[in-house]
Simulated assay, not measured.
Amino acid sequence: MRPPAKAESSPRRPADRVRRRPGPLRRGAVLAAAALTAGLLAPTTPGLAAPAVPAAPSDTEAKLAKLEKQAKALAKDYRGELVALTEARKAAEKASGKADGVRRELRAARDRTGDLAAEAYKSSGVDPSLQLAFAKDPVRSLNDAAAAEHLAERSGEQVRQLNTLVAERRAADADASEKLKAAERKVDELKKRRAKVAALVEKYTPEAPSSGVTASSNGDHPPYIGMEGITSRMAKVRDAVVARYGGKIVSVGCYRADGGGGEHPLGRACDFMLSSGGSMPSGEMAALGDSISQHAIDNADGLGVMYVIYKQRIYDMRSPGWDPMEDRGSATANHYDHVHISVF
């Protein structure tokens, strides 16, 4: 009797040889991609986790608009620009703008992270640059620790960037909040002094610029720039400073049309230069600036001085005391190379 015929086994198709359960590394990569998309990634690098994005302050713009309105009203009542308040308001606006910029960067970074996660998921957790190797030997590649590590590194770098941006965002929001509170405190301080300031400004009759006011009568004086168009009160202050320090002052500049909204275009401000060309003054000249500033403050009542700016600080007679100013980027803009004096 012939033995029963053995059933012929069908040959395995090539595809069957590679359809194996994904190895743990591949499954981890896919899960990592999914978690990354959801913002819940805990990367293989210890200490990394996708951060939660802090909510943006909802009332900053309204507070800034209110500050601007209050600043304009106070400047009108106090008869001149309140530089300390203007500086505080601009600092708050700048800090708020920086916070907005960081928020935009953070959104872009999260979008890039989401794109990476989607890319990884669509390719079964495999970076496109590795797909060729996978195609040649899928089993070996899927179990290749280097491939999984490469994907983890890319994911980890994205999360590091997100963590950095979130930290920057929180710091920017905190800075904006503090600058805003500082400006609000300045408004409150000025409001409390309203009666005293009203009595102070009442002492000085408003003056219009006079084309007849030019040079000092003190004889020898430093080079003058923009003397036509200053008020008589400003000329009086100029002459008093030049009489005391004229031999040492480099130059004096007063009226200029492009004063940036300050007192120069009104003929109510002069700059007493301590160096030239935007350079920092020597120690001796910086000390001279200290002396000029203090002389103007000590004699403010008789001269009609409204405020003095020197060394990135302002002393306003309507709110006595030195207040720091924001960094404007240069020795001249920060008033290190000259003393600025404005009058009522």
Rank of each mutant, 00 (worst) to 15 (best):
M1A: 05
R2S: 09
P4C: 00
P14N: 05
R17P: 01
V18W: 01
R20Y: 04
G23R: 02
T37V: 01
P43I: 08
P43S: 11
P46I: 04
G47L: 06
P51D: 03
P54Y: 02
A55S: 15
A56V: 15
S58N: 09
D59I: 11
E61Q: 14
L64F: 07
K66R: 09
L67T: 14
K69F: 07
K69I: 06
A71R: 07
L74Q: 05
A75R: 00
D77I: 02
R79K: 09
E87L: 03
E93H: 13
A99P: 13
A108F: 03
D111R: 07
R112Y: 02
G114S: 11
L116E: 15
L116S: 15
K122I: 07
S124K: 07
L130D: 15
Q131P: 01
K136P: 05
K136A: 11
V139H: 02
R140Y: 04
H150F: 07
L151Q: 10
L151M: 09
Q158C: 13
Q158D: 14
Q158H: 15
V159E: 13
R160G: 08
N163I: 05
E168A: 10
E168C: 03
R170C: 08
A174Y: 01
D175F: 04
K179G: 11
E184P: 15
E184C: 13
V187N: 06
L190G: 03
A195R: 08
L200T: 09
T205H: 10
A208P: 04
A208D: 10
A208H: 02
S211Y: 01
G212R: 12
G212Q: 12
G212H: 10
V213H: 04
T214M: 10
S216L: 08
D220L: 04
H221L: 04
P222N: 06
P223R: 00
P223V: 06
Y224K: 00
G226V: 04
G226S: 05
I230D: 08
T231N: 08
V237S: 09
D239M: 04
A243I: 03
G246L: 00
I249M: 10
D258E: 15
G261M: 07
L266A: 12
C270V: 05
D271W: 06
D271F: 08
F272K: 03
S275H: 02
S276K: 12
P281R: 03
A287T: 15
A287S: 15
A287D: 14
A287G: 14
G289R: 03
G289S: 09
S291K: 14
Q294H: 10
Q294N: 11
A296P: 10
G302I: 05
Y307F: 06
Y310G: 02
Y310I: 01
K311G: 05
Q312L: 00
M317G: 07
E326A: 13
S330A: 02
V343Q: 01
